Amino acid sequence: MPTVLVLLGWRLFFYANEGNEPIHIHCKSGDKECKFWIDVENFDIQEAFALNLSPRDKRQIRKIIFEHFEYIVDQWQEFQNRRYP
């Protein structure tokens, strides 16, 4: 479960055991948790699920993901290359 970023109380990370799911990022802060699919082609994200997030929390985590979009994608690719050389 490698951590990609820790920012503003949010930890953004990948799970190692999710099979062949498309690129995505998990985010957790206290009892709040969410997952976003990442659309590299269109520079977009889509919420997969969200637990205990207020509208403000959703705006904040979306902003964090977009501000670090390329970094997250690069980290995903490095993580996958280490898993499947």
Rank of each mutant, 00 (worst) to 15 (best):
D74V: 00
K63I: 12
W37S: 09
I25S: 05
H68M: 12
I64M: 04
V73D: 00
F14S: 00
E47C: 01
I45E: 03
F13W: 01
R11K: 15
S29Y: 08
F36E: 00
I64Y: 11
F36D: 04
C34P: 11
V4T: 07
E18H: 11
N17D: 14
E21W: 14
P55Y: 01
E78W: 05
M1V: 00
H68R: 14
P55M: 08
F69C: 07
R59V: 08
N52V: 07
N17K: 12
R83M: 15
I61G: 02
W76V: 03
P2L: 13
R82G: 05
E70P: 07
L7K: 15
I38K: 04
E18F: 09
A50C: 13
F13L: 15
Q77A: 06
D44H: 10
L51F: 07
S29H: 08
F14A: 08
L53Q: 03
P22G: 13
A48T: 14
G19K: 06
F66C: 06
D44G: 02
E67R: 15
Y84P: 02
K58D: 04
L12H: 03
N52P: 04
L5S: 07
S54P: 07
C27N: 10
V40A: 12
N17L: 07
D31P: 06
N20L: 15
N17Y: 05
W10A: 02
F69A: 02
N52A: 13
H26N: 02
L5T: 01
I61T: 10
S54T: 15
W37M: 07
Q46D: 06
P55A: 02
K32A: 05
K58W: 03
F36P: 03
D57P: 01
I65A: 03
K28N: 04
R56A: 01
D31N: 12
L51I: 12
V40C: 11
V6P: 03
H24T: 10
K32G: 09
R83E: 13
I65F: 04
S29L: 03
K63A: 10
C34S: 13
